[in-house]
Every structure is written in C-alpha cells, then in structure tokens.
Amino acid sequence: MSVEAIWIKILLFGACREAAGIEELDYQLAPSSTAESAWTELKNRFPDLARFDRSILMAVNEEHTGRDTILSSGDTLAIFPPVSGG
C-alpha cells in the first residue's frame, strides 16, 4: 500500500463480534476508503460476517453514519447489528 494508506480502528459488537470472534482490530486501508470498503475487507477476512450484510449499522467516532462515509486515519469504525437495548 502507498505511504498515504490510512489506519483505522474497527470495533465489532453483538452478533457481529461473536461471528468474527474478535471485538477490536486495527486496519490499514487505501486513502479515501469508505466504511463500506472496510466492511468488504472485513467480510473477506471473517466470512461468517457475510450474513449480516444487509442488516449492519455503522458508526464513525461514536456517531451513527452511512456506509458511504469516507474514513480518515485515526477514525474508529464501529460495526454492529440493529440495536436491541431496553
């Protein structure tokens, strides 16, 4: 990857965390990568995540966000199923 590659932290929660068997990882991505492209890479690494493809929600730096959000170095991307608190 080029010198401009970005590093992000990925957090997984709930059923996604269980399916991947990991709750936190640091990831290197190409510049201007979107949350969606991070998700695609993550699915390649943890194929069990694919079943969440249509339902997952994302947050960048603790704010709900869309999958087309462009990531910057140092961002924390959280990926999780629809919330079910209460």
């Binding site: 059923a15 947050a59 709900h64 999780f80 199923p81 919330v83 608190g85």
Partner: peptide, 8 residues
Amino acid sequence: LKQTVPIW
C-alpha cells in the same frame, strides 16, 4: 432509546 442507543 430502543432505536438509537447502541446496546444489544
């Protein structure tokens, strides 16, 4: 809360 707060 049940729609937006990230708890599972």
